[in-house]
């Protein structure tokens, strides 16, 4: 299970262990954490929610995309759901590759793709309210009703 949605705190080392391979000369690990201040506003805690079965499929898709683009890459991703406090780990991405440049690039690619195609949402809770992020501002619009062709699986 290299790609998973986790209801429990993520053990970073266990994600790294999944990508260990004799061919690798580098492992990069990205750890996404809950930030207290966003645009000067203080977050008390977050709730992450996922369409779990589809989210796992989309994480697997990202893994396949990386293995196609960066030869010899091995990927593991875990994303947390539920209530997270400030500094808690929301996501861990581990990528191993034969050479370090690929490992950095592929890892960056994974987090950017998560923010595009994986059905996970966060609700921010502040002292004076709460809001699902990525909704009312409608900063991301899909005029055709779907993501661009490149976002679709095969």
């Amino acid at each position: 299970m290299n790609f998973e949605i986790s209801k429990e705190p993520i053990d970073t080392q266990s994600i790294i262990d999944k990508v260990i391979q004799r061919e690798a000369g580098a492992i990069t690990t990205f750890i996404g954490t809950v930030r207290e201040l966003t645009a000067g506003k203080k977050t008390l805690y977050l709730i992450y929610e996922a369409y779990e079965s589809m989210a796992v499929k989309k994480l697997e898709q990202i893994g396949r995309e990386i293995e196609e683009r960066w030869t010899g890459a091995k990927v593991a991703i875990s994303h947390r759901v539920g209530k997270l406090e400030i500094t808690d780990i929301a996501v861990v991405i581990a990528v191993s590759t034969p050479h370090r440049a690929d490992s950095y690039e592929a890892n960056r690619y994974a987090i950017e793709r998560i923010k595009e195609i994986v059905p996970i949402w966060k609700k921010e809770h502040w002292e004076d309210g709460e809001e699902w992020i990525g909704n009312q501002l409608e900063t991301v619009a899909y005029p055709t009703g779907k993501p661009e062709e490149s976002d679709l699986d095969e």
Binding site: G32, Y48, A50, Y51, A55, H79, A90, V91, I111, I114, K115, E116, I117, V118, P119, I120, W121, K122, W132, I133, G134, N135, E138, T139, V140, Y142
Partner: peptide, 8 residues
């Protein structure tokens, strides 16, 4: 129906 996602 999948609102704009905000994971990561």
């Amino acid at each position: 129906f999948i609102p704009p996602v905000s994971g990561g």
